[in-house]
Simulated scan of single mutants.
Amino acid sequence: MPYRSTEILPPGGAGRTPVGVVVLAHDQRHVRRKLLHMQHDDVVMLDLREPVLLAHGDVLLTETGETIEVIAAEELLYEVVPKDILHLVELAWHLGNRHLPAQIEAERVLILRDHVIRDMLAGLGASVREISEPFHPLRGAYHGNGGHRHGHG
Rank of each mutant, 00 (worst) to 15 (best):
H143S: 11
G20N: 05
L124A: 10
I68F: 13
D41E: 14
L61T: 07
L86S: 14
E50T: 12
V22T: 12
E74I: 07
D41V: 06
M1A: 15
R149V: 09
A122H: 04
H94I: 10
P2Q: 15
L95Q: 13
R4I: 10
H40M: 03
A102Y: 05
Y78S: 05
V116E: 12
P51F: 02
H40R: 05
H136L: 07
G147D: 03
I117K: 01
G153Q: 06
G144F: 01
L100I: 08
M38L: 10
G140Y: 00
A73S: 11
G144P: 07
T64L: 15
G57S: 09
G140T: 01
L86Y: 15
R118C: 02
L54C: 08
S5Y: 12
R4P: 00
V59N: 02
L61W: 03
R129F: 14
L88V: 00
A14S: 14
V70Y: 00
P18M: 05
E90A: 12
H150Q: 11
R149N: 15
G15Y: 10
Q39E: 13
Y142N: 04
P11I: 07
G146L: 07
P101I: 02
V31P: 01
L9K: 12
A72W: 00
V23H: 08
H143L: 12
Q28R: 12
V23I: 15
L112H: 05
A14W: 01
I111L: 09
L95C: 15
G123T: 09
L121G: 08
G57L: 04
D119F: 03
D114H: 10
I117A: 05
I117Y: 02
A73V: 01
A141M: 10
A55T: 03
S132L: 02
M120K: 15
V128H: 00
L61S: 07
H143P: 01
V43K: 15
E107N: 09
E63M: 09
S127H: 08
L54G: 09
H87M: 00
E107K: 06
G147K: 07
G96Q: 02
L76Y: 13
T17N: 11
E63T: 12
H26Y: 14
G146V: 07
D41C: 11
D27R: 13
L36M: 05
S127P: 01
E7D: 07
D27A: 13
V128G: 02
G12Q: 09
R113P: 10
V128D: 00
L46M: 11
R113H: 13
H148D: 06
G15F: 14
K34P: 04
E130M: 08
D27C: 05
H152S: 10
V43F: 14
M38W: 02
Y142K: 03
L61N: 02
R118L: 00
L24C: 13
Y142Q: 03
